[in-house]
Amino acid sequence: VDLPWVVKPEEKIKFDSIFDSLGPVGGMLTGDKVKPVLLNSKLTVDILGRVWELSDLDRDGMLDKDEFSVAMYLVYRALEGEPVPMSLPPPLVPPSKR
């Protein structure tokens, strides 16, 4: 699969700087650190739970930089009124994880 990632380079830079500001350990952010940030969006726990499911691609309870970008992308789109998909569309899967 050779699709461009839907997370644009300029968005990725923004998401990466948020990621770094949260104090990742070993390049990963735990759920404890990500949860308050996502709750800040004022989206429901229902929606945020689905965002987490779609973002934590390896299901290890932590997000790396690319997984975090997926989470932020979905949150931003949800805030713009777009529904969060039930499964992750291929263009949203980070190229590093295909």
């Binding site: 759920g31 404890d32 990500v34 949860k35 996502l38 726990v45 945020l48 739970g49 987490w52 499911e53 934590d56 299901r59 290890d60 309870g61």
Partner: peptide, 13 residues
């Protein structure tokens, strides 16, 4: 509900 029997890795559940 969580295959593998462990607890959820989802902090929102």
């Amino acid at each position: 509900q969580y295959p593998g029997g462990g607890s959820s890795t989802n902090p929102f559940l």
